[in-house]
């Protein structure tokens, strides 16, 4: 029996909250573990088909943009620093990641055109590359709360994530889907 997904979501958020001190002590676990988990909890609490008919969200564009801007906000180094010095920001993080990233992403993704999905995937890989590039080579400390060496590790974390996601997204395309191969794999009739 699978537990209901909202229960998993509560467990995930609870885990992130209970272990927030050790998780946030290291930027790698903070940014690459805690933040994605919180966003994932938002995906879990979104029932399939939410807002499927809304005219306001045709193509999922509006909700994807909500997720985009929320992610951008949490990508700012100063937002991450603020979390560590202000309980209000910590609270904001626990609210906006599930409801501002996870849920809108789930709603928008379901309705997004395959091409839009493809573009987003490609851009995600690119942007993780950018972050890796900048964090590995930044000569200044980007976050006051973290060490320069942590910053470098985070940079490599972004790099591995980018590579991992590329493989994860591309590899299935090499697997032959016999059901999908409806068209004859033959050259069209030659005259």
């Amino acid at each position: 029996m699978k537990p209901p997904s909202y229960l998993v979501a509560i467990l995930v958020v609870g885990f992130c909250f209970a272990l927030r001190i050790p998780l946030e002590a290291d930027p790698v676990s903070h940014i690459l573990v805690q933040l994605p988990l919180l966003a994932w909890s938002g995906v879990l609490i979104t029932p399939n088909g939410t807002g499927r008919r809304s005219e306001w969200n045709r193509g999922g564009v509006a909700t994807l943009l909500v997720a985009f801007f929320t992610i951008i906000f949490w990508m700012l180094p100063r937002s991450i620093d603020a979390v560590l010095s202000s309980p209000t920001m910590e609270l904001a993080k626990f609210i906006t990641l599930p409801f501002g990233v996870g849920a809108p992403l789930a709603i928008g993704w379901a309705r997004a055109h395959p091409l839009l999905r493809g573009i987003i995937k490609a851009e995600v890989v690119s942007m993780l590359g950018v972050l890796a590039f900048l964090y590995i080579h930044a000569p200044v400390r980007i976050c006051n709360a973290y060490l320069v060496s942590d910053q470098h590790r985070l940079g490599y974390g972004f790099l591995f994530l980018a590579l991992g996601l590329s493989v994860f997204w591309i590899a299935p395309l090499f697997i032959v889907h016999t059901k999908r191969a409806v068209m004859p794999t033959k050259t069209p009739a030659t005259a």
Partner: peptide, 20 residues
């Protein structure tokens, strides 16, 4: 990117996989 993605997904759909 946009054009290539359209081409890739249609080719993969028609020929089963990238390898196909």
């Amino acid at each position: 990117l946009l054009l290539h993605l359209e081409i890739a997904r249609k080719l993969i759909a028609a020929y089963g996989s990238i390898g196909g």
